[in-house]
Design a protein around this nucleic acid. Structure first.
Lengths: 270, 270
DNA sequence: CAGTGGTCTAGACCACTCG
DNA sequence: GAGTGGTCTAGACCACTGT
């Protein structure tokens, strides 16, 4: 139960003390209770009916207020049990892991948190040969008509999908190699590229936050109010030739992307 | 106008061809038109009334469908003109710029796009001395009761806020220095830290996507369906002492965070 | 079966801008 | 003033889950 403050001030009629709409006031109230912990993660939010009676608003108005919180990612509805405060358990995602082990004690500590949880990782891989989307064509410095090999992966942790990972390779580079085989490459695709004579020594990473596309919603089993982090990684050889482009789509509410960087030697502090 | 397919199949009555709810079907239809470009960025979406008549659904149902798209960040409503397809213009944000100039031609090209647009940057700075939030305390390896100096900045581009940038320094390190002065430090705060004997040589970056808090909504003037990217940067000296922690909040739909990395010397490709 | 949220309707009044 | 979206009501039926 909320603590029974009585009715909220309606905006509509002539009364017009006029502040915020009722549904916003309701959302504000509940949001405060959530952020202060009065409504802890996992706790049940009062039912629509209860809120409606408590605040003297129609069920539709109460629902509108609850929808605000759903779209902010603060509560979820699990019908027909009711609404619950969402749990947020963040894990770390470390794209750099191909290159090195954690170089610092702090990094070590953070990674351990994730790996000690006894998770069961798995993945689904398939390989296609396609004409690349514009953005990929641009990053790999290809021309119209050039083909790429794409390894598409959906990664699971405890049977929950958490990551879409598509890696694109220029067709000419990987033709006939292990990379076109839809099986896990245990020693890592980087290793294979190195053997083929294309060692990556430099990379550019782009990270973007946006709302998911319907396709991503279904593949990652997302609810409303859940943004995704899109991480694009382009790897270059020492001759500045792009040899691989990876698009990672991560569930925003579940993963933090982690980078570690070292100041380039011989660079001024400007 | 939509192309007049006639009524959508309602779920509720006994008819029950039963597939998706009407409002979802409407959202799906419009979403396709948007993603295919039939409704281009900036174009007006048919009015609620028009959609209601065209599909034989009540205004409330049509609104529900439109709300889905609003919360996906695909359309915006500007009352009382109507709904419009949202424009997406992404710029690049490069946290690394303190350390070096773009090291590669690709990076140069991307940065130029951003800087040639003739924007007018500005910022508001204020400085406080506070007890750090838990997360900051943790990153700076401080103990309860330790104080930090925080420089809070809101950055504007053409008078539109695009970035909240709060940097925390352990109080002991920067006491009496220029950093506690709420003015722009043109030569960069890193430079000042170096002069104080705390040169940063290593950093850890964390990037997270989430929906904004109400505070961020107002400071960044965000609409619904707009996630933020939260970028946390912790800088260390060569003795592994954390000397600064920065929290950047960026509007997801406007900025891409860009990192450039070089393979650490002498590391195997594993 | 009772109770939950999900969907949908018909209708009302409001604030705002200038189609 | 006409038309837009924003807010709000009262009421209806549905699907689902758990006591």
């Amino acid at each position: 139960m909320l603590s029974g403050q009585g009715r909220l001030v309606a905006m509509s009629p002539r009364i017009a003390e006029s502040s915020r709409p009722v549904y916003q006031q309701l959302a504000d109230l509940l949001r405060v209770k959530i952020t202060t912990g009065e409504l802890a993660p996992g706790a049940q939010v009062p039912t629509e009916k209860a809120l409606s009676e408590e605040f003297g608003a129609s069920r539709a108005t109460v629902r509108q207020g609850l929808m605000v919180l759903v779209n902010e990612g603060l509560i979820v509805s699990s019908r027909p049990q009711g609404y619950f405060v969402r749990r947020h358990e963040l894990s770390y995602f470390r794209p750099q892991s191909e290159w090195d082990q954690p170089a610092s004690p702090e990094m070590d500590r953070w990674m351990t948190e994730q790996t000690t949880l006894g998770r069961a990782p798995s993945q689904r891989i398939n390989v296609e040969m396609i004409q690349p989307p514009d953005r990929v064509m641009d990053r790999l410095a290809l021309s119209a008509g050039d083909l790429v090999v794409v390894r598409r992966r959906v990664r699971f942790l405890n049977n929950e999908p958490f990551n879409i990972n598509d890696t694109f390779y220029p067709f000419g580079l990987v033709q006939g190699s292990e990379i076109v085989n839809p099986a896990d490459i245990t020693r890592g695709a980087s290793e294979v590229l190195t053997e083929l004579g294309y060692e990556q020594v430099r990379a550019i990473d782009e990270v973007e936050a946006r709302m998911p596309l319907p396709d991503e919603v279904s593949r990652l089993e997302l609810g409303p109010g859940t943004p995704v982090a899109v991480h694009r990684h382009t790897g270059y050889t020492k001759d500045d030739k792009p040899v691989r482009h990876t698009v990672n789509v991560l569930v925003g509410s579940k993963y933090v992307i982690l980078f570690e960087r070292t100041k380039p030697a011989g660079t001024g502090s400007e």
